[in-house]
Each structure stands twice: as structure tokens, then as C-alpha cells.
Amino acid sequence: MSSPHASPRSGAPSVRRLLPPGLLFALPFLVLFALFMVWPLVQGLWMSLTDTSLSAHTPGFVGLDNFTEAFQDAEMWRALGHTVWFTVLSTVPLVVVALGMALLVHTGLPGQWVWRLAFFAPYLLPVGVVSLLWIWLYQPDLGLFNHLLDVVGIGPVGWLSDESVAMWAVALTTLWWTVGFNFLLYLAALQAVPDHLYEAAAIDGAGAWRRLWSITLPQLSRITAVVTVLQVLASLKVFDQIYLLTKGGPNGSTRPVVEYVYDVGFTGYRLGYASAISYIFFALVLLASAAQYAALRRREK
């Protein structure tokens, strides 16, 4: 009993061999993981090979028909294009603006509490609130934005109703809503930049801009890479705010691929076909992850 190597617990050895304590500890997670991650992944793959439907008919095996159909489906390609376009449109400002905010707040200006609240609070709003609020801001006749544009003499903009504007409006809402998250990541990274670098630079007589370009930004390059990776993956998964702001409209011009999955599966009842598109989208996400992983690796060499 006194030896640290002796087993501290009693119990039938055969049971212990079948269920060692480690496995027991992992078991609750593994059960949930198997039920709600592994099984759905397998079932989704299986459904993508069938004509499973929400209506009551027995699903039959259709081979790769769903995938063949998907690759010829112009609407799916269009939706994938919207997802990628949104990712580009949202990622750039979500990284750049967050960096700018963090640099400004990190200067130690008075009112830290207010800045953090202003930039991060929107992130805490449920997407339902965000969309109701921005539908009101974008409202063509009564919304704040068109009132303000009117003051400076610019005619009303159809923020969510004009096909050439809607995706930009969605990206703008997303920037406002989620930039606070990246801002906090940058703020934490800034606090970790070692002081002695700046002290050395101060001795060399480096000015403020010089310090920004030669110390701060290079020191932030790793976190910038990480924030960008996380942002791209988050943006590729976009659904909520687009669905609530525009329902993918006008004329499907903002519909992302996740909404297409939803429309095909739950409005069109075609769960099999929706599963196939899910897997095509999954491939896109994996491709993006792999590409970014490779890029990160190359940078760090």
C-alpha cells in the first residue's frame, strides 16, 4: 500500500482489465463522441449515397448519383462561390480592423474598460438580435444608414435588396458583430511582446513608427497567421446572419453553401442530396485547412 507503484484500488482484476480506469474516465466523452460525431459522420456519408427523404418512402441506394448531380448543379456552384466570396470579403477587414483596434487600445490610453466594451460587446449578442438590429439599420426608408446618407446628400441604398450591395452589407454586419473576438486575441498577443525589445530599440533611437514596423508587427506575425486561419474557417461556415438578414436573397445572390444544404434538406426534403452537398462542403473546409497548414509550416521554417 505504501509503495507508489502498488495499485491503490481494489476490484476484480478481470473487470479492471476490460475497463481500465483511464478508459472509464474517457468513456462519457467517447460515448457522446461516438453517438453525435462518429455515427452522424458515417450516417451522413451513407445517406449521401441514397435517396433518403423526409417524406415517408424507403430510401434506396443510388451510388454516386447525388454527387454527379451536385457537380452539375449550377445552384450549388453558385452557393459555394458565395461562401468563398463572403470568406474573402469578411476575413480581410476582420483581421485588419481587429489589429488596428488592438494596437490603439494597447497604447494605454485612458478608458480601457470602455474600448473593450465597445469592440467586444457585439460579439456577445445572439445572432437573432444582431440580425433584427441590422435589418432595422439597413431599412430603406426609415433605417439609420439611409438617414445618415441623406444628410450628406447620397440617395438611398438598398442595403439588403440590391444584389450588388447585399453581400457587402452582410460582411459589414459580420465585421461589427465578430471583430471583438479577434481584437481580444490580438490584445493578449500584444501584452506578450517582450519589453526588452522595445528598450533596445529606444536606445537605438527608433521612433514610434519604426518600432511599430520593426518590432510590434513582426512580433505579431504568428498570431496574425493563426487569427487568419481561424477566421477563414469560421467564415467558410457562414449561415446564421445571412439566413436571417437576407434569407440568401435577393434572388439567391447571397446564399451560402450551408444554406443551400438547409434548403435542399429541410425545405426540399432531400436529405440524401443535402448530405452529398454537406460532404462536398466538408472537402472544401478540409482543403482550406490543409492549404493553410502547409502555408503556416512553410512560414515557420
Binding site: 463522441f33 460525431m37 459522420l41 451522413g44 445517406m47 474557417l233 444544404v261 434538406g265 462542403f281 466538408f282
Partner: peptide
């Protein structure tokens, strides 16, 4: 193996699971 699977699962977007979850 189980830990490797867990780490790999980080890459799975929950959005692709809604259809099978609903079926389930």
C-alpha cells in the same frame, strides 16, 4: 488512437452534421 481521432474531429464543421443529427 482515440486522442488522435479527437484532435482530427476539431476539423469537422458542425454545419455538415445537421442533416444526420436531424435524421438521428
Amino acid at each position: 488512437v482515440l486522442f488522435a481521432l479527437t484532435v482530427a474531429a476539431v476539423l469537422v464543421p458542425p454545419q455538415i452534421l445537421i442533416v444526420p443529427w436531424f435524421r438521428q
